[in-house]
């Protein structure tokens, strides 16, 4: 069944609402993150066009940083491909958890294009807001949000590269910090206890596993901390809730 005219109108307004959600703090944070990345690339003596292209084609800051770091150490391209892909492995589950909440009528081939715009900022905000958005409005909401986020990456990267040599280093410091800080802050708004526990344990376990083996760190941390959080919630936290809900 296709979307009714009323639904289509609602979807157009959801698209604009997504754009409005992105404009302001989220876009500013992502912009700063990309400025920081451009500055990092400048310090690593990279080609600015390589940096700018990566912001459009990789569109994932952690992977881009891994790439720059390995390039500056002269790592072979195949090793870089593998390391960045492992860093991006989180996208498999990020996309599954977010897109499984879409309307079934939105399961169209165009999702394969839209998914390229999915990165941490748009994911975190959509996960936060989707439960309050009717199903048929979710895909256009995400698209508006992710489009604005995607648009700031290129100018941010180039600006960061060109500013790096001329601004006080303290400004670059603040710009680099603001991106991870934003994600830590949005995590405080996550509601299910399984996810809260997973976040706390992921924060502790992440650096530890990275210290043992950088390549497998992300997968191991995700599986161990995530499963533990889910299990603790299911075993001890969820039952009283159901009982009180029934009683």
């Amino acid at each position: 069944m296709p979307f009714s005219p009323a639904e289509l109108a609602s979807r157009r307004s959801a698209f604009r609402e997504g754009m409005r959600t992105a404009v302001g703090a989220p876009a500013a944070v992502l912009f700063s993150g990309m400025v920081g990345f451009g500055a990092l690339g400048y310090a690593s003596q990279m080609d600015p066009w390589l940096l700018a292209t990566s912001s459009l084609t990789v569109l994932a800051l952690p992977g881009q940083i891994v790439m720059i770091e390995m390039l500056s150490h002269g790592a072979p391209w195949l090793a870089i491909t593998l390391a960045v892909t492992l860093t991006s492995s989180r996208f498999v589950v990020m996309v599954v958890t977010l897109f499984s909440q879409l309307d079934d009528r939105d399961r169209q081939p165009w999702l394969y294009a839209a998914v390229h715009l999915l990165a941490m900022t748009a994911w975190a905000l959509s996960m936060r807001d989707f439960h309050a958005i009717p199903r048929e409005r979710r895909a256009p909401f995400f698209l508006g949000l992710a489009l604005v986020c995607g648009l700031v990456t290129l100018p941010g990267t180039l600006l960061g590269y060109w500013l790096a040599g001329s601004v006080h280093p303290a400004v670059t410091l603040a710009m680099v910090l603001i991106n991870p800080l934003f994600f830590l802050l949005t995590f405080t708004e996550v509601r299910p206890w399984a996810n809260r526990l997973a976040i706390v344990m992921g924060c502790v376990l992440g650096p530890l596993t990275y210290w043992f083996d950088a390549d497998s760190s992300l997968l191991v941390t995700g599986l161990v901390a995530g499963s533990l959080g889910y299990w603790v919630d299911r075993r001890w936290l969820r039952k009283p809730q159901i009982a009180s809900g029934v009683g």
């Binding site: 941490m120 995590f187 992440g206 596993t209 941390t221 995530g226």
Partner: peptide, 10 residues
């Protein structure tokens, strides 16, 4: 939960 743990760790 697994996804949030991965994103948090990153």
């Amino acid at each position: 939960a697994v996804t949030y743990a991965m994103v948090a760790s990153l």
